[in-house]
Nucleic acid binder design. Structure first.
Lengths: 202, 202
DNA sequence: CCACATCTGTAGTGAACACTACATATCTGG
DNA sequence: CCAGATATGTAGTGTTCACTACAGATGTGG
């Protein structure tokens, strides 16, 4: 029993192309024809490798969040809650306006509302956004324990807040906001975290 | 020459139903069959009255923004920049979790990314969000002139910030965040506006 | 070289989509 | 009561969609 004909395309490079299509057109707006053309393969290869359209999206999301998690680890490595928020939001301002990618964030652009048969796509995206929020919350819990955040601070609320601002910036970016506009938003947003930070030096 | 057979349905009530469908499923996710069933009419009536699917969306958006503008007038009537932000964001927390409507905001749920043939839908929504941002900016410009905001404050950046937080809250609401969670975000967000407010009493 | 397994390209499949032709119904103005 | 005008309901239209049957190509194990 042989192992069969080997795949002629690189799955990760194909995923990068699919990711870009989903990012730009959303899950429902992306067609199999667009995806296969961008990936440089034919539909049967796509279905053999990823199952169906939703499987392809999940694989693309896995790749996206994998890269994003590496960056998030750097974010939460910042020394204070304020620095974490600043590094996160200023970084997002830059990432979401990086001309190498479509504007905005795949976890938002992928699909906020979907039609019948794709109802779980928005849930899937929300679950991945929640992972980042959880990581932020854990970091802010630590910041409070370290006395970096005030006793009155609510780490979970702060994490939700930073996550919400990130999402809002993503929508703004996808509708044409430039990098400077997003940086201004980030700077203002950080002040709310600063307001919950302890006055004593870290 | 007679005036023809009169319309048998109420256009505004039908629009309310269409608005709800777009709100829940997005522009692309909403089908003509869903829309006509919710509106209680047949496709020819829809097309005679609204032109096409996109015309129906615009009519629904007109109705949505009309109601929203009435509320925004109340928001910017608050006495200080901080009070404006608080009234806006706390109100949004409540509105976006009002069980009488689908969760979130139609100007976000309607469509952030769309496929070929609907590219201008996201632009249309962004333009209407920008109207609210402009109104906020004008209000914050006034607040700065009145000494309510610090000399270092940037009214345009503040308006963009509040708008971004609103959008972020809308996405959170549509993915299941409850009212209390959104209120927490609003409370944190207001602190950034407070940080740019003058210390002297108004 | 052969049996077998997997991939690839061509060319479709049925279903769902936005939209409409057409006959009929219901109004106004004369 | 009639002519013109517009709305309605039925029943479609062509197009596009996600997805796949099938035949041929390309690999491995014996």
């Amino acid at each position: 029993m042989g192992m069969g004909r080997p795949r002629e395309f690189d799955a990760e490079m194909a995923l990068d192309q699919a990711m870009e299509v989903f990012w730009r057109h959303g899950y429902e707006g992306a067609t199999i024809a667009q995806l296969t053309e961008a990936m440089g393969i034919n539909p049967p290869s796509l279905y053999a490798c990823f199952g169906n359209k939703e499987g392809l999206l999940k694989a693309a999301l896995d790749r996206y969040t994998k890269l994003r998690n590496i960056w998030m680890d750097e974010v939460v490595a910042a020394p204070t809650a304020r620095a974490v928020a600043e590094r996160m939001l200023m970084g997002i301002a830059d990432k979401q306006t990086d001309p190498a990618n479509p504007p905005g964030c795949l976890l938002v652009q992928g699909g906020i509302a979907c039609g019948t048969g794709s109802e779980n796509v928005p849930f899937e995206l929300a679950a991945r956004r929640a992972q980042n929020e959880d990581q932020l919350r854990d970091r802010f819990v630590r910041a409070k324990a370290e006395g970096d955040l005030k006793e009155s601070a609510d780490p979970a609320a702060l994490a939700r807040y930073v996550s919400a601002v990130s999402v809002g910036m993503g929508v703004m970016a996808s509708s044409g906001a430039d990098r400077e506009a997003l940086r201004q938003v980030a700077k203002v947003a950080v002040q709310a975290v600063e307001a919950q930070s302890s006055d004593r030096p870290q």
